[in-house]
Design a protein around this nucleic acid. Sequence first.
DNA 1: CTGAATCCGACTTGATACTG
DNA 2: CAGTATCAAGTCGGATTCAG
Lengths: 123, 123
Amino acid sequence: MTEPLDADMFDAMCPSGALPFQIGDKWTEMIVICLADGPRRFTELRVPLGAITPKVLSATLRAMRRDGLVTRTAYDENPPRVEYELTELGRSMLLLIDAVRAWSSQYLPAILAARQASERLDA
Amino acid sequence: MTEPLDADMFDAMCPSGALPFQIGDKWTEMIVICLADGPRRFTELRVPLGAITPKVLSATLRAMRRDGLVTRTAYDENPPRVEYELTELGRSMLLLIDAVRAWSSQYLPAILAARQASERLDA
DNA sequence: CTGAATCCGACTTGATACTG
DNA sequence: CAGTATCAAGTCGGATTCAG
């Protein structure tokens, strides 16, 4: 259920900067996807997110907690362990994220083609 | 079909800043919605967009043209007239925008409530 | 009417280093 | 392990002014 996250899991989504649909800030969508299969630890999330700095991950998770998208559970152990988990509200985003991904796979190539065509006009 | 746009048509959507789904940049979604019923002129678009500056509207439309979302048609008249119209690609976003809006009407209140609850903890 | 040119402040993101 | 503190850089939207 909660196997280790693949460090390359977002590499294939590279042209996401061209996608006209953005979920939250730069990282929210990926974090939601990472948490889809169950709770994850702080460092565990850093693996697939391409060397996100701890400050940014911390800030993003705090904003998501504030909006009720994730919960944070700290275990009083040594070494410390903290787990983040999607709330029902956060989980409700998964369906819409799937819809966005479906739209992307269908239409993103057209956007990239239009972009390259207009680049040729500039030259 | 293309009745004048209401200057208040986006006032009810005010808490859109809290929405975790963003379409393009700040204005792209609203422009797509404004063009849903047919072509619109430059100044016509400025009405419902709450005093968007011409520079920003121009830049947004240029980016949308570059991505193949809208077409621009200039008529050689005096005074000059320019019309923007959704392409098929741009029109394909409408379904997804509807899905985002449906999600919003269902879950955005929960986000706002969670946000207010965490504000009370800060105080 | 439909923009373009310039300047600017605010916000976002990241690099780096440090702590309980 | 799980963050925080500080600093630097880039980007975006906007105000203002001017032009075809």
